[in-house]
């Protein structure tokens, strides 16, 4: 079964960029343009192997999304990476408390991103 990564970002350019990197590596991709759309997709039964989310989005930011995802059945332990332009330590701590697995500052090198994904999802 192919590894599937969910990307959540309100920037269409970022969605295309990360999708391009992942699909070139043979990974399946689920895209959501907002936290709400991501939650709806996950509640609909989608089971990605890893989730990558932006921090600053519309009504539901990345940290709120992590809190929601952690409460969904079967997704308590899914690796979640925060991919953001922010680098403040207090926000990192907040994300970590919410249940984030890692913090990546944009822009990320494609090879480095794939390396982290393979580290978190064996067989990816």
């Amino acid at each position: 079964m192919a590894t599937t990564i969910m990307i959540v970002d309100d920037s269409p350019t970022m969605l295309m960029s990360i999708e391009g990197i992942l699909s070139k590596a043979g990974l399946g991709v689920l895209k959501a343009a907002s936290g709400e759309e991501a939650v709806t997709t996950l509640q609909g039964g989608a089971k990605p192997n890893l989730l990558i989310t932006d921090l600053n989005m519309g009504a539901m930011n990345g940290i709120d999304l992590i809190r929601r995802v952690r409460k969904l059945p079967g997704l308590q332990f899914i690796p979640i990476l925060m991919l953001t332009t922010e680098s403040q330590q207090d926000k990192r701590n907040e994300a970590k408390s919410a249940g984030a697995t890692g913090w990546i500052v944009k822009p990320v090198d494609p090879e480095a991103l794939l390396k982290v994904i393979r580290q978190l999802v064996p067989g990816a």
């Binding site: 350019t13 960029s17 391009g20 332009t85 822009p107 494609p110």
Partner: peptide, 13 residues
């Protein structure tokens, strides 16, 4: 091409 795709992230930053 992959590196170019990755570099587009600069726009979001």
């Amino acid at each position: 091409i992959v590196r170019l795709i990755g570099s587009i992230q600069f726009q979001d930053v």
